[in-house]
Every structure is written in structure tokens, then in C-alpha cells.
Computed example of a mutant assay.
Amino acid sequence: MTVSKTRVLIAGAGPTGLTLALWLTRLGVPVRIFDKAAAPGETSRALAVQARTLEF
């Protein structure tokens, strides 16, 4: 697999953004995550999390 020179900006560190960051990083794509919160959340921001997402 080749390493991409594309860099990706992910807006939001919720379950979708973090899962996307995980997969892109595994594929060799550099990512940066921006979120409106200055610190990690203390509560879940997911209405529902799929079981497969939890496995990651």
C-alpha cells in the first residue's frame, strides 16, 4: 500500500470523526482533528454507537 501525500482535516472528535481518523491513519493518510471543545468531553456525544465501532 502506498502512503498518501494528502492530508485530511476532520471536523469533530465524536465517534464518526475518531473512527474516520483511525482508518485514515491505518491507510497512511495524515489527519488532524479539530473540535469545538477545548478538552475531552465528559459525556457521550453519540446517540447510538454501532457494535463494530466499539470493537475498534
Rank of each mutant, 00 (worst) to 15 (best):
M1Y: 06
M1H: 10
M1D: 03
V3E: 10
S4T: 13
S4Q: 07
S4Y: 08
S4W: 02
K5F: 02
K5T: 11
K5C: 03
K5Q: 14
T6C: 04
T6V: 11
R7Y: 12
R7I: 09
R7K: 15
V8P: 01
V8D: 01
L9P: 01
L9Y: 02
I10Y: 09
A11P: 00
G12S: 02
G12D: 03
A13K: 13
A13N: 11
A13C: 11
A13M: 07
A13E: 02
G14Q: 07
P15W: 14
P15A: 15
P15R: 14
P15S: 15
T16E: 03
T16F: 09
T16I: 15
T16P: 00
T16L: 14
T16A: 15
G17V: 07
G17Q: 10
G17M: 06
G17I: 08
L18V: 13
L18D: 07
L18Y: 09
T19N: 09
L20D: 02
A21T: 01
A21H: 05
A21N: 00
L22N: 10
L22S: 01
L22E: 04
W23G: 00
W23H: 10
L24W: 04
L24G: 10
T25M: 06
R26S: 07
R26W: 04
L27K: 05
L27V: 00
V29L: 06
V29I: 15
P30N: 03
P30Q: 02
P30F: 02
V31D: 00
V31C: 04
V31K: 01
R32L: 13
R32G: 03
R32H: 12
R32K: 15
I33E: 09
I33C: 10
I33W: 08
I33N: 08
F34E: 15
D35Y: 11
D35N: 13
D35M: 10
D35V: 08
K36E: 11
K36S: 08
K36Y: 06
K36M: 07
A37K: 09
A37W: 06
A37M: 11
A37Q: 14
A38H: 06
A38V: 04
A39H: 13
A39E: 15
A39D: 08
P40S: 01
P40Q: 02
P40N: 02
P40T: 01
G41H: 12
E42V: 10
E42C: 03
T43S: 13
T43W: 08
T43G: 02
S44G: 11
S44F: 08
S44A: 14
S44I: 14
S44E: 08
R45I: 07
R45K: 13
R45S: 05
R45E: 00
A46S: 15
A46R: 07
L47H: 15
A48E: 04
A48P: 00
A48I: 10
A48F: 12
V49K: 12
Q50M: 07
Q50D: 12
Q50E: 13
A51G: 06
R52N: 12
R52K: 08
R52M: 02
R52A: 12
R52F: 01
T53K: 03
L54N: 01
L54G: 06
L54E: 07
L54W: 04
E55N: 06
E55H: 12
E55V: 12
F56T: 09
F56L: 04
F56D: 05
